[in-house]
Amino acid sequence: MEDILRPIYQEWASQVNTLGVLLIKKNDQFASLSDTSDAILLIVVKEAEYPVTVKHYTYQEKNAALHTITKLQLNEWLRSGTNRKLIQWLVKGKVLFDRNEFMSDLKNTLMEYPANDRKFKMGIEFSKLICCYMDGKIYFEDQQYLDAYSHIVRSLHHLGRLSLIDKGLHPEMTVWSQVKHIEPEVYQLYNELVNSEEELGKRLELLFLASDFLIHSRVEEGTSYLFDVLKRKDMWTIDEVLKHPSLKLYEAYFETLFEYLIEKHYIEVVHIETQEQGIYQRHYKLAEKLLQKNN
């Protein structure tokens, strides 16, 4: 396979714009890594007209895909964790070309998983967790049990990913096989929800009771990155938070997240008078208990 694809990747390796080439092969253990292809060539370049391009090839009744991504797009995906297969490609793929040890350094960084990267990704997972969980509770209270079920499954998935990242692991596509060994308490919640023979409404009621405490216990680790940013000023408007460059990837979740953190007394609301009588603008600040804890 590698010999057949060599002319394609050697053409890329000869270009000064190319930083690295990886080969990901389909096998029984990691069949999902390569989607529907028998092999994937991942090309990382310094810059390109488009951040991502994909080409498909056929050879000897097999399929191959070539994914070209810019260094900027690669870093964005790694930071946000939105492209889950990418990390597995980087960890399990074979390096075919490596300019100035770019790919080797990248693999080492992924294995070390720097603490600040973990804090950032835990914040993203916690934000998604809260949004799914709060929406699920609304559906549950309206007795829309199937919609509640869908949202609570997603919230538990984010809770599982949060637990793995906290342990310094990269969540794989098979998250629950990892969580079962690393965080059995979270796995048990998920297992009881999907496999219990209880009536769905009763299952959801019990799960909301159990998971509320578990989620609350993860607030400080899940919001550590956010709180580090909020400590830089005494008070914030929601617009200032939304526009902060360090929090760009959080913006879709802020309003729900803030309401949850206000409810749990981690963030306080400060009402500032406006020119209109009786109307106040809401500002936000970290609760005194958090400021005292970190002094």
Rank of each mutant, 00 (worst) to 15 (best):
L156I: 03
R154H: 10
L193W: 09
L226R: 13
E240Y: 07
E221K: 14
T237C: 02
W12G: 02
L207P: 01
S127E: 05
G222L: 05
Y250C: 01
E220T: 08
Y190N: 14
V229D: 04
Q144S: 08
A210G: 00
I8M: 02
Y57A: 05
H283S: 03
T274D: 05
E197Y: 15
W89S: 03
A65V: 11
N100G: 01
I130Y: 08
E185K: 15
D239N: 13
E2N: 06
T237K: 14
S163P: 00
R203N: 09
L214S: 03
L286T: 05
F102T: 12
S224L: 10
N116E: 15
M103F: 06
E276G: 00
M1V: 12
Y253W: 13
T82Y: 08
S196M: 06
E125G: 00
K62H: 13
S34Q: 10
A252R: 15
E61P: 03
Y266P: 01
K71C: 02
K248A: 11
Y57Q: 09
G168K: 13
H151R: 15
L156S: 05
K26Q: 11
L42T: 09
E172P: 00
Y59D: 07
F258A: 02
L156E: 04
Q15G: 02
Y225T: 05
T36D: 11
I238V: 03
R6N: 03
Y266G: 01
E273H: 12
M103W: 07
K248I: 09
D28T: 14
S177I: 12
E61N: 15
E185G: 04
Q275L: 09
V52S: 02
H157M: 07
E11K: 13
Y190R: 15
D3E: 14
L90E: 06
S14H: 14
P114D: 12
